[in-house]
């Protein structure tokens, strides 16, 4: 489905959910490299690190909300406040379908909010949709991005 190599940042405390996500990502876009962070503290550390180093930044961030230590909302705020990271699309991927969470996430500039599906086949579809959608975004980026206007 997708050919491009991409770097995806997954922030997910549940090993099971991480496994599922990674499985479906591999299944759908094997070229995508997943970098997983296990809790809020790790995510914060990562964000701090991006300031100093010339790390390759992720193409997309999947962020769970319920995390040990710092929760997803806190990380989202920190993330979107980082000048290096702000442009990177952050998709909130959480079991919570609470209106409060959705509203707060959008306020904090989450680019998308996807509830983890409880139907057996939907998980893969959702991951596939997320990825394909944000790959579409690249075209978008292509047409309007200032760097590749001459390509």
């Amino acid at each position: 489905m997708c050919q491009k190599e991409h770097n995806l940042l997954l922030i997910e405390d549940s090993d099971d959910h991480a496994e599922l996500t990674e499985f479906y990502i591999r299944d759908c876009c094997p070229a995508i490299e997943v970098n997983r962070l296990r809790d809020g503290e790790e995510a914060m550390t990562y964000i701090e690190q991006t300031k100093n180093t010339e790390l390759s930044l992720p193409w997309l961030v999947l962020l769970d909300l319920k995390l040990p230590k710092y929760d997803g909302h806190e990380i989202l705020i920190r993330f979107k406040n980082s000048p290096h990271l702000a442009k990177i699309p952050v998709v909130i991927f959480s079991t919570s379908n609470s209106g409060k969470d959705i509203e707060q996430a959008l306020i904090n500039h989450a680019n998308s909010y996807i509830v983890k599906p409880m139907e057996p086949d939907r998980y893969g579809e959702v991951i596939s949709e997320i990825l394909s959608y944000w790959q579409l975004n690249e075209h978008h980026f292509f047409f309007y991005g200032p760097h590749q206007s001459d390509a």
């Binding site: 549940s14 959910h17 319920k66 919570s96 599906p117």
Partner: peptide, 23 residues
């Protein structure tokens, strides 16, 4: 909120793995 989130989590897990298992 907490219950819905935390109770959904294992369902998501099991549903996800069931789908994988089927696959």
């Amino acid at each position: 909120y907490t219950v819905s989130h935390d109770l959904k989590s294992p369902i998501v897990t099991s549903m996800g793995f069931i789908a994988i298992i089927r696959k």
